[in-house]
Computed example of a mutant assay.
Amino acid sequence: MDSKPPAGGFVLGRMTLQQAISQVTEVYLHLHGKMQKKRLIHTVQSAPDRVSDWIPLYLERVKARDVKTETLAVARRYLVKVEPVLGHLAISVITTRHIADYLATLAGTPRTQQATRSVLLDFFREAIAAGWRADNPVAPTRSERVETQRGRLSLEHFKAIHRWSAANQPAWATRAIELAIVTAQRRADIAAMLFSQTRDGHLWIEQGKGGAKVAIPLGLRLDAVGLTVGDVVARCRDGVLSRYLVHHTAHTGRAKPGSKVRDTTIGQAFAEARDAAGVTVKGKTPPTFHELRSLSLRLYHDQGINAQALAGHKSADMTSVYRDVRGDEWVKVSI
């Protein structure tokens, strides 16, 4: 470096005053997250500890957990939006203020804000585990409270929807609704149910979300609708050869008789039946297929059946009926 100062300048140690000001400014912008554009220094140094460097490594760690495709897609979708804002910063210098300021830009979309915070919380948790930093800057932050606006499904609503479906929709749509109300399982699990899962007097379900394993007696009866699990399984058997309880019985688009009905298609069919039956909840968005699970659990609870075990939820307070065995054993629902 030429230590001779330019005209009108002077040297501070080994650099000129102008050079010192430039470097201090660069550091200030870097620490306060104001360097929105990637600078030449980043290309030259190719710093391996930036947020943008950790993103692909984090996604690989998420993928290694064997999570659902949608879970990985959600993480990627939110991080793509984070990267232009925070990606250029070293992950070790990210502060709670950085995170809070970013979340504040999402204040108009509380659900997005909440989901983004959740992804970032896990993002930095994994960074800690990998030794990239010592603490989680997301933990102290708060997101806006999101009130559930979806309307609850009542028994009367269910009966109206079921009636319309039975009279107007393909058999698989009605069977899906019936399976949901008598088993209290999620839409994706209902779409995946196989006839081979019915054995030894039970319907054996390994839930996709959470991985709980629940064995539901075929004799379990939901008094409010007058059906047992076995009744509905029997109704799923028809003249079409299929592995799936909920299956197409005719050619529909690219779907063939006997093929699985996608869970999104089940949800759409329910919405059609709901709207046609005139089911609305004042001041709320219309109940979705998922509300069948909630209604089922409420009805079974009123009937005296252990809804916690049926849902596949873990609870330290109910170990006598639902023991946390780390997913290695089946839990049978008592009736």
Rank of each mutant, 00 (worst) to 15 (best):
F123S: 00
H32Y: 13
V232Y: 00
D275V: 06
T43Q: 10
L86S: 01
G258I: 08
I216F: 02
L194Q: 12
V240I: 06
L12H: 12
A47C: 10
D317G: 10
P217E: 13
A130Y: 09
S46L: 10
L155F: 04
H301W: 11
H88E: 15
V138G: 00
D231F: 02
T16G: 05
V279S: 05
V233R: 00
H202F: 15
Q18C: 05
T288N: 05
G211S: 10
K284E: 09
E329Y: 11
S143E: 10
I335Q: 10
R125D: 05
D324P: 01
D317R: 11
T174L: 13
Q197G: 04
G33S: 08
E329N: 13
T141A: 02
T109V: 11
A104R: 14
I181D: 04
H32A: 09
K209C: 02
L89I: 15
V232M: 00
L79R: 01
L79G: 00
P48M: 14
L297N: 04
S334Y: 09
P257T: 10
G210A: 06
D275Y: 06
G304L: 07
A215S: 12
K260C: 11
V225P: 01
F123V: 02
L120K: 00
D263H: 15
S154F: 07
Y244K: 01
G258Y: 06
L86C: 01
Y78Q: 09
A250M: 07
M35S: 13
A276V: 04
V325H: 10
L179M: 15
T285M: 13
H88K: 10
R298Q: 14
A166Y: 00
K159I: 15
K209T: 03
K37N: 09
P217W: 11
T228I: 07
T252H: 08
Y28I: 15
I99H: 00
E156C: 03
Q268E: 14
S46M: 11
E144F: 07
F270A: 01
A75K: 15
L121F: 08
I266N: 01
P286E: 08
V261F: 07
A212W: 08
K81D: 09
H162T: 09
L121I: 06
E272H: 05
I181M: 07
I21T: 08
S315H: 08
V51C: 02
L12R: 12
T288I: 13
I177S: 03
H42P: 03
Y322T: 10
V74G: 08
L121E: 09
H157M: 12
V44W: 11
A176D: 08
H32N: 15
L89Y: 04
S296F: 02
E144Q: 13
V44L: 15
F289A: 00
Y244W: 15
S3K: 08
A7N: 08
G219F: 07
D135K: 07
E60M: 05
T280K: 13
R323D: 12
D317L: 11
N168M: 03
L299K: 00
V261G: 01
R262G: 13
K209Q: 06
G151L: 06
S259D: 15
R125F: 03
A130M: 11
A224N: 05
